[in-house]
Design a protein around this nucleic acid. Sequence first.
RNA 1: GCGGGUGUGGCGGAAUUGGUAGACGCGCGGGUCUCAAAAACCCGUUUCUUCGGAAGUGUGAGUUCGAUUCUCACCACCCGCACCA
Length: 864
Amino acid sequence: MDEHYKPQAIEAEVQAYWRDNQSFKAVEDSHREKFYCLSMFPYPSGKLHMGHVRNYTIGDVISRYQRMQGKNVLQPMGWDAFGLPAENAAMDNQVPPSRWTYQNIDYMRGQLKRLGFAYDWDREIATCRPDYYRWEQWFFTRLYEKGLVYKKTATVNWDPVDQTVLANEQVIDGRGWRSGALVEQKQIPQWFLRITAYADELLEGLDNLPGWPDAVLLMQRNWIGRSEGVEVDFQLQGRDDKLRIFTTRPDTILGASYMAVAPEHPLALTVADTNADIAAFLQTCRQTGTSEAILETIEKQGMSLGLNVIHPVSHELVPVWVANFVLMRYGTGAVMSVPGHDQRDWEFAKKYDLDILPVIYPADGGDLDIESGAYTEKGILKNSGRFDGLTSEQAFTAIAEFLEAHDAGRRKTHYRLRDWGISRQRYWGCPVPMFVDKAGNSSSVPAEDLPVELPEDVEFTGVRSPLNTLESFQNVIHPQTGERVQRETDTLDTFFESSWYFARYCCPDNKASMLDARARFWLPVDQYIGGIEHAVLHLLYARFFHKLMRDEGLIDTDEPFTNLLTQGMVVAETFYREEQGRKIFFNHKEVAVERDAKGRLTGATLRADGKPVTVGGIEKMSKSKNNGVDPQDMIERYGADTVRLFMMSNSPPEQSLEWSDAGIEGSFRFLRRYWKFARENYRRPAPYPAAGDTLTETQRQLRCKIHQTIAKVNDDIGRRYTFNTAIAAVMELINALSRRADTSENGRAIRHEGLMVSTLLLSPIVPHITDAVWRHSGHDSRIIDAAWPEVDEAALAQDTLSLIVQVNGKKRGQISVPVEATEDVQIQAALANTQVQRNILGRPVIKTIVVPGKLINIVVKPAS
RNA sequence: GCGGGUGUGGCGGAAUUGGUAGACGCGCGGGUCUCAAAAACCCGUUUCUUCGGAAGUGUGAGUUCGAUUCUCACCACCCGCACCA
């Protein structure tokens, strides 16, 4: 073995072997248990960032661990290649989005290979290639024929100067990011996917996902947001039509003192036609954003529409208002306002001096205070005529039945979940495979004419999508009718591609169909790994698509991902200076930090000028904060193994990982120490294994530690996914083994056993260095084909127990007793301990608590 | 606004089912080696202390023989909220 650890040479050799032998090629084989391990595929933004490296290292460690358990592992990789950044880059660099994307893919593929991830590269897919998206288009037309795809008008952010639709992130303080023009909300026809038809199944399916984090399940439940309530039709006074509202609290209906409709509600629009003030108000509302976060935090504003409705129970007149906090897209776009029992209605009523009618009183008979705020609890009805005295629950049913009997309402379930708008007025995406004839009717492109290829060699200015100006793309002859028709120029939301890629990995080479039997073999994904930011959208859409594909007969399971791991962000310290009110950020490489004698951070200076900079706090790595670390630099300096080790060692995968130069230095140091330990112990001594009966007590304990470590790492990697503690356990083992220079044969045999065990345990995390050590130790085969080490139960056996002794819950001593000692013997030993005696001070023992194998607590009367 | 998460030494974190708080790593201090430095190795490192101990896991209550862990209230920070992926 080399005296020094040389990662570059070792890694090149091992990776060449994997490549030449197709070591990670996955083949359908029903004799072994399959394990499909998937990491969320990257957007090819240019180069890998540390978040990718962390995500993919986690997936790779799990894959390699499962492989060593004897499972048939599939771990694929691909590219979520359509998207907005390609269009931005195209504008900045005058390169077509396609070329920019393919170049990025080539570079990033090289980076992934350099990190030694065990992917089956034969299954690589890129969503921007026609052989991928043609099946997406085919599936879209199938859904269209089933009525699950439809067109309706919806609101977009419109830049009136650039004449283009803007994504939310391109709207900055209400203005277009490039033009600076005030953004308008514009209604245009768009394609929708009827996800609401699956709302119940998507909600109920969450109960069958025990392998998902509770936080994600909860977020999806809230997102779907099923609410049981009542739709009520309020007759408009002096008009033929009715105002339909939705409420989850019909028990409060007698407390309704006004109605509130959304600014986009047809009733408001009608009034605006003849009322300039209302029209102006609606215009103001249009300029506020559409996001829920904005709507919920803006000042609540409204205007009376000058209309009244007739209350279906009391027959009294109730005024109708338009209010900026009512969402057109939820429920019916109109609500009854009950200021006595809803805080938002209460604030609105106070502001505009509207009536506050108390109708629900505390069930315990306490006083009702609605002067300082709304009473939102359920309770007993009063001031509600025939419903007085009922509980809220009873009144829900009674009032619903009353309304149903009078044809003025009905019970109804609404969802917060809306149908998924999948149209994007953008170029770099999958073309919607539809024709529009002269009359404006849509029809789907026949299967044999798919794919509708996206023209890749285009001029891209960013003002309008090139598809809108490309005659050859837009104006075509319908292949079946021979009619002149227009192609749809919208493209699909990129979430569409990422909603089914996990299935296509199973059969990426199939040119005849979207999926085949191989998808049934591999699916569902056994372990999915990705960022928590996908907790709702991507993971909900993928679940939805899985059910759609099931209903198309393509697969036969209900859920795509059995287990889900959501990894945390990679974060780093920021440094900045304030210049003319703007923060200029500096990368940590440009900064020197100062510490006091205890190692506390006291300040930082810029290396360039030696003057102080502000330490700005830990933030997610980003360009804007200039706190990123390029993985490539780290791989070149330390090798892939050190980078992988650091990614896994500093915090558990679900928490954020703080980057530190010293930390990666520490990981590298550990690998060097491991290499040195290997060099001293790789030769297999004879006899082996050391005969158990001739071991000294120290040797026996060391061997026990080796096998305890196997058990611990099994639990940490196999069950808990706390890779950081698994690594700590192996470090501890190697520390313990290196500490003593026991040159006896048994001593050497134990160190060798410890080395082999450590090597196997570390191999999923640092697969290159451990492979080198493995082969130096005389193995002909590669470590990826070795079996995971087994715990020798005999080595774990102890003949004495070490117990903690507490007095009144405080640790006071430690005793050692034979394993076979009874509880009484243990207690006597505890009482005999001098430290314990000193703390008991002769006081009577009230009771003793024995936690078997761990601790004895002696409870005495407290000192007065 | 709503929803979710986190809070433990100088720092990242450990303590898995309510049972030894601070594993492991970093940093810092001291030492060995060296002409010197780096590297490497060894020792120490929660705080206070009258050196007996005492206090201590964001704050304040509570349950318990025993609470970082469970309950309630509060504080701080972070994330998501439908055209970024």
